[in-house]
């Protein structure tokens, strides 16, 4: 492959927690400026796979990854790659909104600050730009000194997105970003993803098949095999997965027969 259209390329990725193989032999690509959705029943390893994309699994004691994950033709799991650097290039938004209990400004400015940006004017710029991109600026511009915890759930999640894009990542990983939100806030986030798509590549894990169908360009369907390990069943254009899946298991899942 080696196509520059791919932001991420997983080749025979196996993820272990100690002796347990949580994800088996996943090979897939994430195309640039597209939204790729990971769907599947609970416990099928889709969050684990997502977290392996920016080496967040390194933080779990005993977690280990085999296989290759190419990012700009560089294997992220080669011993010469610094996990901290990876996370600066591939950002993450979590399932539950987790703003820092700090002022909104500090929440967004933290990422640039740890990368060494100290100038106030530059930080001000970044904060405003990120909050605008996350469609939150108009709501919070008068209360940047207020704690991030004082926002509503949907606003908090958008703050987390603003925080993630403040470090200008190339890929944005979203781990069920709407599961803790109400329908209206969910809609806002989905619209936002469509807007962000123009600048970022997005990978999203979701439980909600309608959401995957609505927002994503590509969909990967995962399931556990008989060894209770997650496998990639099918990966294709979203339209194809939801209308004409190749695998019967995919069809059963997307039509709601199980899961």
């Amino acid at each position: 492959m080696g196509n520059s259209n791919y932001a991420l390329q997983a080749k025979n990725l196996n993820i272990y927690y100690g002796e347990f193989r949580a994800v088996t032999d996943v090979s897939m690509v994430v195309e640039r400026h597209k939204i790729t959705a990971l769907i599947g029943p609970s416990g099928c390893g889709k969050s684990t796979l997502l977290r392996s994309f920016n080496r967040m699994n390194d933080l779990v004691p005993g977690a280990r990854v085999e296989g290759e994950l190419l990012f700009q033709d560089q294997n992220l799991y080669s011993p010469f790659v610094d996990a901290v650097e990876v996370r600066r290039r591939i950002g993450m938004v979590f399932q539950k909104p987790n703003p820092f209990p700090k002022p909104i400004y500090e929440n967004v400015a933290f990422g640039p600050k740890v990368q060494g940006i100290r100038k106030k004017s530059q930080l001000d710029d970044i904060v405003e730009r990120s909050l605008r991109k996350a469609a939150l600026w108009d709501e919070v511009k008068d209360k940047l000194k207020k704690s991030g915890l004082e926002l509503s759930g949907g606003q908090q999640q958008r703050l987390c997105i603003a925080r993630a894009i403040a470090v200008e990542p190339e890929v944005l990983l979203m781990d069920e970003p709407c599961s803790a939100l109400d329908p209206i806030a969910t809609l806002r986030i989905e619209e936002l993803m469509r807007e962000l798509q123009e600048q970022y590549t997005i990978v999203i894990v979701t439980h909600n098949m309608q959401q995957a169908a609505r927002v994503s360009d590509y969909t990967a369907f995962m399931m556990v095999n008989d060894k209770r390990s997650g496998e990639l069943v099918e990966f294709d254009m979203t339209e194809k997965i939801f209308t004409n899946p190749a695998d019967t298991r995919t069809e059963d899942y997307v039509t709601g027969r199980f899961g």
Partner: peptide
């Protein structure tokens, strides 16, 4: 201190 806070910080590329 909630683990989610640590994750958020690590996720932003903090050491």
């Amino acid at each position: 201190v909630q683990p989610s806070i640590r994750q958020a910080s690590f996720g932003l590329g903090a050491t």
